[in-house]
Simulated assay, not measured.
Amino acid sequence: MLLVLTGSSCSGKTTLARALGERVPGVTVHDHDEVGVPEDADTQWRNRTTEEWIRRALEYQDCGLDVLLTGQSPLGEILASPSAPRLDGIAVCLVHVADEERRRRLNRRDDGRWSAALLESFIGWSTWHRGHAEDPRYRPEVIINGSWPAMAWDRWSEWTKQDPRWTTHLLDTTEKPIAQSVDALEHWLTTQRTAHHAGQLPLAKGWVDIKS
């Protein structure tokens, strides 16, 4: 199955995934951007690269391995990717951090190179992620407008937040020790894999064929 850690920059996704990868057998860890990020990276580039990772996850799936992928693609993008229905299972966790803490982390990580306007764009993207995680009808145009033509948005465009398939776990890392957040992430991942093996995962293979 594909397990996704998503969220805006500096929420702690990569740090948590690397730590967790050393503790959980049968899971391979990758970062969306490890294939390289072009200078003109845009929404369509993110869409295409996400599809490439889903295809790689399918290869791992054939070998009996799950994939933990960090990146910024939210649930709606994952589900709309062309090859998503071929996955045995999908689960998404949104890694979140409070706005002021995100600003501090961005400035510390990138040596203060971001302008105030760019910092606020990271905050705005984080706010959108929270709304999207709760409700598929929360400003879907943010990811649909200008997207890769191969994306199948109609797979979930009629869903409401009551649909059990629309589920994103929220992990808030604000003022939390890394070890505590890793433990919480491990619990989430283990719970998702257990649900998958028990046939209880909301986004198990066949989800796309269920009528809302």
Results as ranks from 00 to 15, higher is better:
Asp111Asn: 15
Ala57Thr: 00
Gln200Phe: 05
Asp66Trp: 12
Ser83Thr: 00
Ala152Tyr: 00
Ser126Trp: 02
Asp110Glu: 13
Val182Ala: 11
Thr50Gly: 08
Arg56Gln: 14
Val182Pro: 01
Ala117Gly: 09
Leu58Arg: 04
Trp207Ala: 00
Arg155Tyr: 00
Glu77Ser: 04
Gly206Leu: 09
Ile210Glu: 13
Pro164Arg: 12
Leu170Glu: 06
Ala41Cys: 12
His30Leu: 11
Gly7Phe: 00
Gln72Glu: 07
Ala98Trp: 01
Leu58His: 08
Ile178Ser: 08
Glu34Thr: 10
Asp110Val: 05
Val92Gln: 08
Glu52Lys: 12
Glu77His: 01
Leu79Lys: 03
Ala198Pro: 07
Glu158Gly: 11
Glu175Asn: 15
Trp53Asn: 01
Cys10Ser: 14
Asp33Pro: 09
Gln72Asp: 09
Gly112Ser: 11
Asp31Cys: 12
Gly112Asp: 10
Arg55Asp: 07
Thr50Val: 07
Gly124Phe: 14
Gly124Arg: 15
Thr173Pro: 06
Arg102Asp: 03
Arg86His: 07
Glu77Lys: 03
Cys10Met: 10
Trp125Gln: 12
Arg137Thr: 12
Leu170Met: 08
Val208Arg: 01
Ser126Val: 06
Val29His: 12
Glu52Ala: 13
Arg155Ser: 03
Trp45Met: 10
Ala91Asp: 04
Met151Asp: 02
Glu175Val: 10
Ala41Trp: 10
Trp114Gly: 08
